[in-house]
Amino acid sequence: MANSNLYKGSLTTIILKLLSEHDKMYGYEITQKVKALTKGELKITEGALYPSLHKLEAEGLLDVEVAKVDNRLRKYYKLTEKGTTETVHKLSELEQYIATLQSLINPKLSY
């Protein structure tokens, strides 16, 4: 498993990105999706996922709906209009950060 400290700051971007690709998702589904996409390299812990989801909901970036599935209630999250705009912004920020790191790790030396 990758060092979890390295992705901590990117957790909200990961959640927003996943939700932008799906109509709606629930908490457990998000953890499993990340695990599958990264082939188990990245595991979102429950203790980090729900606080992030609740924070995004309070900021008005996510909307919630509840449905009865089997014999229990399931809470789904989906992006609001504000959330969709913020996803684009956050992704561009992250890409910029990755590019900066790349230039530090593999500097292209010119003579």
């Binding site: 908490g27 599935v69 209630l73 399931r74 809470k75």
Partner: peptide, 11 residues
């Protein structure tokens, strides 16, 4: 409670 119950039930 509802959210945590569903999460644990899935797991």
């Amino acid at each position: 409670q509802t959210e945590l119950v569903d999460h644990m039930a899935n797991d």
